[in-house]
Simulated assay, not measured.
Amino acid sequence: MPGHSGSDGDTDRVEVGVELLAALEFESLSVADAVDRIEAVTTNPRTTRAILDAAEQRGLIERDAGRIYPQGGGHVDFDADVIRKDGAFSCRRCGCSLSTGHFIQFDAGEVGPFGSSCIRIVTGRE
């Protein structure tokens, strides 16, 4: 999934990344920490920049002095928005092997898998 796969794939990743940023439960976080979260969607620097720019243009985040301020676009409901799948997975955040993957369901697509701790870190619950 990382890398360039054409404009449709990039557009989908931008939309998923924007939804992820809108759902962060942080008062603020550094741009580096925001990029860490976006890496669950893409590691392409152009796509990462497009995600940050689109989220800012839509009023979902504000950027100031190297910090990102989510503007209350929503949050991830762990009962409704997170599904668990059994199988052999690697966590998108830390790379650990998983027998149960946690996936966040957004309108634009799915993000994951994550381990039970990493999904809380990515969304800002921890």
Rank of each mutant, 00 (worst) to 15 (best):
V41S: 01
I51W: 01
E39W: 00
R49M: 09
F89P: 06
P2M: 08
D53S: 09
R120A: 12
T42M: 01
E25W: 06
D86I: 08
F114N: 04
T42A: 03
R120N: 15
K85M: 10
R49H: 08
E27W: 04
V35F: 02
I51H: 04
A40F: 02
S28L: 05
L29R: 04
E56R: 13
G115F: 06
A23L: 01
E126W: 07
M1L: 10
L29G: 09
V122L: 12
C91R: 05
T43I: 00
D107T: 14
A55G: 05
D10V: 10
G59V: 09
E39G: 00
E39C: 04
D8A: 15
G124M: 11
V16G: 07
Q57C: 01
D53M: 03
R13D: 14
R63E: 11
G74A: 02
D79F: 08
C94A: 08
C118P: 05
A22C: 04
P70T: 01
F103S: 09
D33R: 09
R49F: 04
A65L: 08
G95H: 04
A108D: 13
D53E: 14
E126N: 13
G17T: 04
L21Q: 10
L21V: 11
F103I: 09
F78H: 10
L29Q: 08
P45F: 05
H102M: 06
D33Y: 02
G101M: 07
A55M: 00
R37P: 00
R49K: 11
I51Y: 04
A32C: 02
G87V: 08
R93A: 12
N44H: 13
T48G: 00
A54M: 07
V41Y: 03
P70N: 03
I51Q: 01
P70R: 02
G66W: 09
T42D: 07
A50R: 11
I83Y: 13
Q57R: 14
F78R: 12
L20T: 01
F103Y: 15
R92V: 10
E126Y: 11
G115R: 03
